[in-house]
Amino acid sequence: MDYSGVGIAITGCGSAAPETAIDNDRLSEIMDTSDEWIASRTGIRQRRLSDASGSLVQLATEAARGAIEMAGIEPIDLDLILLATSTPDDMFGSACQVQAALGASQAVAFDLTAACSGFVFGLVTAAQYIRTGTYRNVLLIGADVLSRWVDWSDRRTCVLFGDGAGAVVMQANTVDRLLGFELRSDGSQHHCLNLAYSGEPKALLNDCEITQGQFRSLTMNGQEVYRFAVKRVPEVIEKALFRANITVDAIDWLLLHQANQRILDAVAHRLGIPSEKVISNLAKYGNTSAASIPLALDEAVRGGAVKLGETIAVSGFGAGLTWGAAVFQWGR
């Protein structure tokens, strides 16, 4: 069967964040830090933190409902749900719980893990299902609750992260709005940013020893990640633009993973993109990992900044190390 005429449109978006907002001054009550120290180095002023009763599934479901409503479809219309997350409520995955919460009984659902690149990797993955004609309506969610996994005594890392979720609906379309993409990975740099398992040997039988343990807190070499991002992200965006057969000047908006304002500024500068074209909500939410791009997109769309038909270049980067970019036009 020939599916060459199947295009992709991103027709709806939604987002969710916990109610609890902790600003930088509040963090100074539990560690040696200050608003000036955090904001001057990162651009972050506050972050949202999930409370003890909160869950990733709740956040993901709320964001998903907003995207589904905007797209003008019903949950029963969904063929596929992709949940990009590194912090599921269940180690076996949380996408199926989201499917059940939505009542999307016809949808296949599974998790995808690519850390802060998860949304972009999920976007490209979903696109392949649509372009082959396998599915027509796909819900892509990026959601993370990293407050569970940071060391709250380490001011170098814990001040960076927040919790949240964002979602988009992708649909088969007569005009292809996904113009180009590029994905990359480099496992040799895994040590720069990870959340590793730590186990202790346990003798199960005389000739069989296993390990039992838990995951450590998130660890990061901030300087190395910064150098990686400001070099590799402009390169991968340029590759995506080349595949889209457009130039930087054709971009209406640059939307990067919301990791650090210095990274956002440096990447935009290297690409020659003025600051007024850069979408940033980092100051309010911090780094929400796979949620950061769709959360910022939803705010920009609902706030009236992003208009139908405008061209957006997005790029995610993070643990793995992984990085990628995609260029698309908003709406049908």
Rank of each mutant, 00 (worst) to 15 (best):
Y129N: 01
T132H: 10
T125R: 06
T125N: 13
A126W: 06
I130Q: 06
Y129L: 04
A143N: 04
A127V: 07
V138A: 05
V120S: 08
V145I: 15
L139T: 11
I130Y: 08
V138Y: 08
T125C: 08
I130P: 04
R136N: 14
I141W: 09
L139W: 05
G142P: 01
A127R: 08
V145H: 09
T125L: 10
W149V: 15
V138F: 10
G133A: 04
W152K: 12
L123G: 09
R148H: 12
G133S: 04
R148D: 11
W152S: 08
V150D: 03
Y135G: 00
I141K: 01
R131I: 05
Y129G: 11
L139R: 10
D151S: 11
T125K: 05
G133I: 02
N137E: 11
A127Y: 02
G133W: 06
Y135N: 07
G122W: 02
T132I: 04
A126M: 11
A143I: 11
I130M: 10
F121D: 01
W149R: 13
G122I: 06
R148K: 13
R148P: 13
L146E: 00
W149L: 14
A127L: 06
Y129Q: 07
L139Q: 07
A143G: 09
I141P: 06
D144E: 12
Y135D: 02
G142A: 03
Q128M: 08
G142F: 07
V145W: 05
A127G: 15
Q128F: 00
